[in-house]
Simulated assay, not measured.
Amino acid sequence: MRRNILITGASSGLGAGMAREFAKRNYNLALCARRIDRLEELKRELQASSPGIKVWVRELDVTDHDQVFEVFDAFHNDMGFVDRVIVNAGIGSGAPIGKGKFSENKRTVETNFLAALAQSEAAMEIFRGQRSGHLIIVSSMSAMRGLRGSMTAYSASKVGVAAMAEGIRADVLRNRAIKVSTIYPGYIRTELNENTAPGKTPFIIDAVKGCQLLTTAIEKEPNTAYVPWWPWRPVGFLMKRLPLSWVVKVS
């Protein structure tokens, strides 16, 4: 039974929501993000609602790659054994390519892909040493296809992390004690999209329901999971196969 979970990007959104759900299920939690004040507040909340668990928090900017390894190793020392790492930290900003916003798109790719690579490296070093563990990469339904406008760099970064997760999974196929899951969340209402105009995000669900479904999916340790399964698995199937002109109309 996996009991110790490390979650990045845990100060808000899906990271904080998953922490609440795992706490209800009596998991010990190592939580990191840039906003340490929010993490401390979340720690107090979780320990009050689930007094039987242990919670550790540390400040972490995942784009500081050296710090990623330092923080993961420190959590490993705290817990003694890290059962599961959820690579969740990311940003949703971006701009159309060629519109003079290279720095914004660069920041998106560096945060969502290069930082995820650093987190995965740090996690897998721990798991290889333990000879056991479960790595979860949070991608997006945006990874199903290249998307236009402000979503181009974001979708590209999410394609990248999905391919990386598959490569890691292929590398450990013969080691049944190490699992690698790729999670494709659909539209879940968080701080990243709370200001989106009504009607622009079809099939959106609230954060509580979304994080319940994410937690349930992760506990099953699948190779891949669409969350929620309906309608996103069939939507993903169609997105990969429809002509680009059709995808543009709905993206």
Rank of each mutant, 00 (worst) to 15 (best):
M1N: 12
I5Y: 07
L6I: 15
L6M: 13
L6P: 09
G9H: 08
G13T: 15
L14Q: 11
L14T: 12
G15D: 08
A16R: 15
Y27W: 02
L29I: 04
C32W: 05
R35G: 03
D37N: 09
Q47G: 00
P51M: 03
K54A: 09
V55A: 07
V57A: 02
R58L: 00
D61K: 01
D66I: 06
A74Y: 00
A74V: 07
I86W: 05
V87W: 04
A89I: 06
I91L: 09
G94Q: 04
P96G: 02
K101H: 12
E104L: 14
R107E: 10
T111E: 09
T111P: 07
A118N: 05
S120M: 10
E121I: 14
A122H: 03
I126S: 06
I126N: 04
R131C: 12
R131D: 14
S132L: 08
H134W: 03
H134T: 07
H134A: 06
S142V: 08
A143C: 03
L147I: 04
S150L: 13
M151I: 11
M151F: 15
Y154L: 05
A163I: 09
A165H: 01
A165S: 07
R174K: 15
N175Y: 05
K179E: 09
S181L: 03
E191M: 09
K200C: 13
P202D: 04
P202K: 07
I204G: 11
I205P: 11
A207R: 15
V208W: 05
V208D: 15
Q212E: 15
T215I: 05
T215W: 04
E221W: 01
A225F: 00
W229L: 15
P231H: 09
V235K: 06
F237C: 00
K240N: 04
R241C: 02
L242G: 02
L244S: 11
V248H: 11
K249E: 08
S251D: 10
